[in-house]
Design a protein around this nucleic acid. Structure first.
Ligand SMILES: [Mn+2]
Ligand SMILES: [Mn+2]
Ligand SMILES: [Mn+2]
Ligand SMILES: [Mn+2]
Lengths: 228, 228
DNA sequence: CAATAAACTTAAGCATGCTTAAGTATATTA
DNA sequence: TAATATACTTAAGCATGCTTAAGTTTATTG
């Protein structure tokens, strides 16, 4: 039972805030507890509990049966955690030569364990990058999010056009390793040749080699028009 | 109350094992729970509890009122944690140019959060170093500890002789920052000019500059004879 | 619009790792 | 060697963050 003594930011709380931020990105609606639970792979009950705790900390507003919404305070913590995550990913790729599929899981834990001092040194070492190796914007220390070029998901792109890969959803390692095996990188040129109505599979050409992606795989890639 | 369902290695457990390893280094006697508690800055009660859990996991042997002793299994985990700690310290200094007083606290948390994959890549990047920037040996992946040259603590060194700094106890950041301010580094030359009987203060000369260290400060430095 | 289904919350409980307070064993010393 | 001090352990309890099971609210639909 919840006894309403709520104190510090913990690893769990940072992960909740980060996930809520992500789920809020394209909507103004409150985020449902069940959606959060699904993403974090825990039960709804745990999320309801945590919603109360985070609400008591003024990190989000929570209306029972309606969902949660980050406060400015909560958003700041989410952005800072995302900043640490993306700086770590960039740093590991730059220094150790890891590939873009190898860094997410490491960053997922390192993001919670780094002092501001160390983060600043990493930021400086990387020369204050605006985007990480997956094309995601890195929030500044002040909590400002660099603006990403207007991207379109490959599932929504126009047949016959040639695009540049601008961003990749990299949460699934298997898919990332698949992309790596095919030689696909950030800023690779990709021509969308056709789309199958049956299941929305796409036929693309990258480095003059043809590939077929299921809709699910295609949905990981975000592109911009080549000729802009 | 302890209910004897003991399962996984956690951050806490790694820290206990590491500390017990350190306290066992120069003795064959079992380590007392109170000594561990003092070092980890927790109560004796907590340590007694944990001793039972670690014993149930076969990571140490524990005799009530007598203390604990690591098993081979426990020693392996301790060495692996120390390995991660020291590789992180070396890596942060090498890549980010941190100084030797700035890395310990970061490593203290990073050591628990790194996959074997990442550790291997860091090890490889550093070209499999045998010693860290404080002169401490880095256990190999196989759990072998490189042999440190025979060192003597500056508090035990001979007056009139010139030495090389071979190892520094770096647990206290204030002292480390002091050494850094004085320009003292690993392998610096240090001449022991005199020692005051009253409090065992030492008078030394480093880079032709004289310094006075209290016994407590001097006890952080370990040296070898210059002419060997 | 009432019955039912789906979504969500509350309650109870467990695991981990601490704490303080009380109890027991070992060491000291008169 | 018995009293006393010190060291150590046990007991009870708390905080965090989960779980399952039961209860409540909101949405769906016949
Ligand atoms: Mn990531
Ligand atoms: Mn995380
Ligand atoms: Mn260290
Ligand atoms: Mn540690």
């Amino acid at each position: 039972m919840l006894k309403f003594i709520v104190t510090m930011i913990t690893i769990s709380k940072e992960d909740y805030l980060k996930e809520i931020y992500a789920l809020s990105l394209f909507t103004d609606e409150p985020v449902s507890t069940s959606k959060i639970a699904e993403k974090l792979n825990i039960t709804n009950a745990a999320t309801s509990d945590m919603a109360k705790k985070l609400s008591a900390l003024d990190l989000l507003s929570y209306e029972k049966y309606k969902g949660v919404k980050l406060t400015e305070k909560g958003r700041t913590i989410a952005l800072n955690t995302i900043r640490r995550h993306r700086l770590w990913e960039t740093f590991l790729i730059k220094t150790l030569g890891l590939n873009w599929g190898e860094v997410h899981d490491e960053a997922e834990v390192l993001e919670h364990q780094t002092s501001e001092f160390l983060m600043d040194r990493i930021d400086q070492f990387l020369n204050f990058p605006e985007f990480d190796p997956h094309g995601d914007p890195i929030p500044t220390k002040e909590g400002l999010m660099p603006v990403l070029p207007e991207v379109v998901c490959l599932t929504e792109a126009e047949i016959g056009k040639t695009y540049i890969i601008q961003k990749v959803d990299h949460d699934n390692k298997e898919v990332m390793d698949y992309f790596t095996k095919l030689g696909i990188e950030l800023y690779s040129e990709i021509a969308l040749e056709d789309r199958m109505k049956f299941d929305n599979s796409v036929f693309v050409s990258i480095n003059n080699i043809r590939h077929t992606f299921s809709q699910q795989v295609a949905s990981k890639l975000f592109v911009v028009n080549k000729n802009i």
